[in-house]
Design a protein around this nucleic acid. Structure first.
Lengths: 134, 134
DNA sequence: CTCTATGCAAAAACTTTGCAGGGAT
DNA sequence: ATCCCTGCAAAGTTTTTGCATAGAG
């Protein structure tokens, strides 16, 4: 049994979703990898559920997105990645290796918007070189 | 002849790309619309070039991206949009109507990164309600 | 027991590729 | 005249859908 099986089950139940082994495994993979695309998840989960369908992965990703349990990260020039939704944070994507890192939210952003724009969310994507690729 | 025909031709020539009517039209559409996805561009350009191929639109988008003449904007939950590359700016996407607006860059962002991260670019995406949808 | 989720297969949607003819330089 | 670009058709990739069965609550 997954270390965090109960936790994932509760996350799902809170949103009135059924806790299936496939969904729990997907959440486990996302937790462990941090950021993963569809292909990452599919190839990883097949190790445990040999006959899982790619359609199931897609359906569950969409279900989990709608439930707000996970979120999508759109990175320029690459495929979307997904991550567990957790405390608000920003992202740093490495130009060399393509890895995405979570970084702390900025303490403040000094920006002037035209009249009438009411921002609710800000999402900041930094790109550059990560420590490994130095 | 397009108002900015010469300008677009020069932009293309600087990158050693041929200035074709289709490319000029695509740049004109991007300038006029501000932000457009593949489908927007294709349906718009077909008014002028009835027999243009969708493949040509894709090829040119990729060519223009590689040349750095345009850039891609990845918006959560929707298809990628494209825009002419111009002075650095941020984006505001309206949760209601889905429109993307250009807004001024923040004057400053106060953020602390872990040791070893060297950011080169920052891209900020705001989301909320735009003036029209109020 | 009921109703949702899964797996499979097929379809739909999206994007790229190869090639022959046309057009820009 | 050369080489790039276009349009078309086909192939490749990604994502969604429909349906029968399995499994969660």
């Amino acid at each position: 049994m997954e270390k965090r099986y109960v936790e994932y089950t509760n996350m799902l139940k809170e949103k009135e979703l059924k806790s299936t082994p496939q969904r729990v495994a997907m959440l486990g993979i996302l937790e462990q990898k941090g950021h993963a695309d569809i292909e990452d998840i599919y190839s990883e989960i097949k190790k445990e559920f040999v006959s899982i369908s790619l359609a199931t992965v897609y359906k569950n990703i969409n279900t989990l997105l709608e439930a707000g349990i996970i979120q999508e990260i759109k990175v320029p020039h690459k495929k979307s990645k997904f991550e567990l939704k957790k405390h608000k944070h920003s992202h740093f994507v490495c130009e060399k290796c393509g890895n995405v890192y979570d970084v702390e939210q900025p303490k403040s952003i000094d920006i002037e918007l035209p009249e009438g724009f009411k921002p609710k969310e800000t999402s900041l994507m930094l790109s550059g070189i990560c420590p490994k690729c130095h």
